[in-house]
Simulated assay, not measured.
Amino acid sequence: MPTSAQKLSGVVPPFVTPLTPEYDVDTASLARLVEHQLTGGVRGVFVLGTSGEGTFLTDEQRQTVLETVVSEVAGQVPVLAGAIDTSTARAGAHISAALKAGVDAIVATAPFYAATHPAEIERHFTRLASVAEDTPIYAYDIPSRIGGTKLPSAVMIELGRQGILAGVKDSSGQDTSLRKLVLDRTDAGLDGFAIMTGSELTVDCALDFGVDGVVPGLGNVDPAGYVRIFDAVAAGDRELARREQDRLFRLFEIVEVADRSRMGASSAALGAFKVALFLLGVIACPLTAYPSIPLDDAEISRIGGLLERAGLR
C-alpha cells in the first residue's frame, strides 16, 4: 500500500476519450485534454473508466489512450487506468497492458454480468493485486454499472488492511455508505487508505466529512472549479467551497439537456461532457462511442449557454 505521503488525494478527473468522426482515438485532442487538466491544477488523471468509455473501446484503442496519456503527462501527476471487465482474467489482462504502458495505479470494479458474493469479490481483488505486483489498486464502487453489486465496506477495509487495496473510488451515490467507509477507515487505523468520491454534486460536503478527493466526470470540463473546492475546504473556507460547488451544481445541468426519449443516459451525460469540451476548443469532435447517439445542434447550443452561465465562455 502507498505510504501516507503517496496517498491519492485532490482532484483526479476521469478522462473522456476523444474520438474522430471515424470513431478512432483522437490523440491530438487527448493531448489537449491532458494540458487542460494539468493547467487546471489536478493531482492525477484517470483513463478508461466510465467517462472514458473504456468498456466500449478495442484493446488497440485502449492501448493508444494509455500510451498517449502517459507520454503527455510525463510524470507530472499519477496516471490511473481502469481495469473494468466481466471477469478476473479479463481485468488482469487489462492490468498487464496498462503496466506495459507505464501507468502509476489501477482502478478496478468487481466482476460483473455474473452475480458475485463478497468472498468472490475479495478473491477477485486479491488475484488482481498479484498481477499488479507493486502497482497500487483502487476499488471502483459503482453499483449502477455492475449489476447493482455494492462493494461492502468490511471487505474494502480488510483488503486495505492486507495491503491489497490502496483505496476506493466511491461512485455509488450513497453518501451514508461513503461516510461509514470513512469512519470504518478511522476505526481500522488505515491512514494511508485513500477514499475518493465520484460525485460531482456533493464534493464540498464529502471533503468536509473526511474523503481525500474527488474523481468528477464534470472535471473534464472545469477541473479548476473542483480544485478551488478542494483548496477552499483545505483552507477552512467553507463559504468559497459552497459557492464553487453551487456553480458546478448548475453547470452539471448540461447532462440534462439531451432528449432522453431518443438516447440513453450515458449518451446524454458523456455526450454533454464531450460537447462542452468541443465548444471550449479542447477536443475536435464530440462523438461518443458507437452505438451512442450524438447530441443535435439545438442541444449543443443549449450546452453553450450553460457554459456561458458558468463563466467558462
Rank of each mutant, 00 (worst) to 15 (best):
E239A: 15
P291E: 07
L181D: 06
Y138N: 05
V107M: 14
T86D: 04
P286H: 11
R145H: 09
V70C: 11
T126E: 14
F209K: 08
T116M: 13
S261F: 04
S171A: 15
E253M: 10
L280H: 04
M1P: 01
S172K: 05
D231L: 02
L312I: 00
E67C: 09
V203M: 09
R247T: 10
E60G: 12
E67G: 06
E200G: 08
G163K: 08
G147A: 12
I283S: 00
A110D: 10
L279W: 00
S199A: 14
I121T: 15
M1R: 04
R238Y: 12
R185Q: 12
G75I: 06
T135E: 07
A154M: 09
R127C: 00
K7P: 10
T20V: 02
P136D: 07
R127A: 15
E35S: 12
L279Y: 01
K180H: 13
D212R: 07
R313Y: 05
V211F: 07
T126I: 00
A91I: 05
A31Q: 10
A91M: 11
V69Q: 02
A110E: 12
S171Q: 10
V16P: 01
Y140M: 10
R243P: 03
T176N: 09
R32C: 05
Q6N: 14
H94E: 14
L165Y: 04
E120P: 07
E253Y: 00
D204Q: 14
S153K: 03
G173D: 11
F125M: 00
A234S: 15
I84G: 02
V65P: 05
S301R: 13
A28Y: 02
M156P: 00
A298D: 15
R123D: 14
E67A: 14
R32K: 08
L38T: 01
A114E: 07
R262Q: 15
L251I: 13
D26I: 00
V70G: 09
A276I: 10
R123L: 12
P13R: 01
Q76V: 11
F278I: 00
T186K: 14
T116A: 13
A284N: 13
M263H: 03
D141S: 15
V73N: 04
E22N: 12
G52P: 06
A235Q: 12
L19S: 03
E299Y: 01
S96M: 08
F125T: 05
R302I: 13
M156F: 09
L270M: 13
L80E: 06
